Amino acid sequence: MKKRVPFILLIIFIADPYFYQAVKTLTTNPLILSAYWLYDLALVLGLILIMLSRSPTRNMPKLISWLMGLVLLSLIPKVAALPVLLLEDVTRLFRGFPPRSEWVSWLAVAVTAVPFVGLLYGLTGGRHYYKVRKETLTFADLPEAFDGFTLTQLSDIHSGSFTSKDGVEKGVAIVNDQQSDVILFTGDLVNNEAIEMDPWIDTFARLTAPMGKFSVLGNHDYGDYKRWEHESDKQFNLVRLKEVHKEIGFKLLLDEAVTIQKGDQSISLIGVENWGTGGFHQYGDLQKATAKVPGDAFKVLMSHDPSHWDAVTLEHDQHIHLTLSGHTHGAQFGIELFGFKWSPIKYIYKQWAGLYQNSGKYLYVNRGFGFLGLKGRVGIWPEITVIELKRG
């Protein structure tokens, strides 16, 4: 967030004075005009405070979350209205710049209503607007016994951000409704500390799958983003988090593989610790995780960060049929309509949401079950993924 503050401030200094012209055309009420600038001043001061802070306080994450929401509510609607005002200014240029038209100003204000309502919903109800996304993948070498095998993928629970027990329990119920053979969780159970899961252990322990529940760690699970008083506290936190995985019924895979058996046939489920590019820690070791996996086995890999797929998995000496990742959250902000999808995260991650294929190998990037930073989701809804494996 701190790195993006100058860019956000630049947009505010451009968009706000320009949109203010429409407001000023429609009203001369000093209270409304003053409130307009006081709101902006509060946002700017908050952003500057974040940019200048060197030692984050305990309440800084909350301040950042609130500011992110308020900035989006303020800026996105105004930016959406700018083309209306710009188009009028083009015509005003050829008309000797007469006063701004009142009806055009009303149109600009009306245009802001759609993104404002959408943002407001995303920041309130959107955090638990779970979407079940289903994919069917066909493989020629899938063992016959696993034709029709289903897995439900969850990722990025981020329990430290939850505030609504009903909302979370709604999501857990939807997961169980899928009745998949296995449930696979691809990391980031917490934001920083294992104790964040304490209120939610009973809830997530209710997840059921007849052939097991399996998990891996994500970048936030290691406690790397918190200043610990002692290194031993950080180490104990990770030990406790691993215990939490057991308490909610998940087998945590730490650079290792397990065999899922049906009759005399099997597939290999592989889990690596977090490994990411762009400055993220590279704890995972795919070579170690696959050391005991037969070369001809059908393989499903859980790896939290999708950048691991391009950087390591595709070139690995064993053929990994399907990789499941998360991590990106789809930035919790974007557009997905009629097959079109966009999010600012696409400029950081080549694979950021949904299904990807390369050389007969698949990657699925889950958009995340929870939320972090931004206290909600706008357009990129929380996801429960169901993948059916078919032989063909």
Rank of each mutant, 00 (worst) to 15 (best):
E243P: 00
G249A: 13
F250H: 06
K251N: 12
L253G: 11
D255W: 05
D255K: 01
E256K: 08
V258D: 09
T259E: 13
I260E: 07
I260T: 09
Q261K: 14
K262L: 14
K262S: 15
G263L: 13
D264I: 10
S266G: 07
S266V: 07
L269G: 10
L269F: 08
I270T: 13
V272E: 03
W275E: 07
G276W: 13
G279S: 12
G284R: 05
G284D: 05
D285Y: 06
L286M: 04
K288R: 12
T290K: 00
T290M: 09
V293T: 15
P294S: 10
P294M: 03
D296P: 00
A297G: 01
A297Y: 07
K299A: 04
K299Y: 06
D305R: 05
W309T: 15
D310M: 10
L314Q: 15
E315G: 14
E315H: 12
H316K: 08
Q318M: 14
H319P: 02
H319R: 13
H321N: 12
L322H: 09
L324D: 11
L324R: 03
L324A: 05
T328A: 03
H329D: 02
H329Q: 02
G330Q: 09
A331S: 08
F333L: 13
I335K: 04
I335G: 04
E336C: 01
L337F: 12
L337Q: 05
F338S: 12
K341S: 11
Y347T: 06
I348P: 00
K350S: 11
A353R: 06
A353T: 07
G354L: 12
Y356C: 07
Y356P: 06
Y362T: 07
L363G: 12
L363F: 15
Y364K: 13
V365T: 06
R367K: 12
G368L: 10
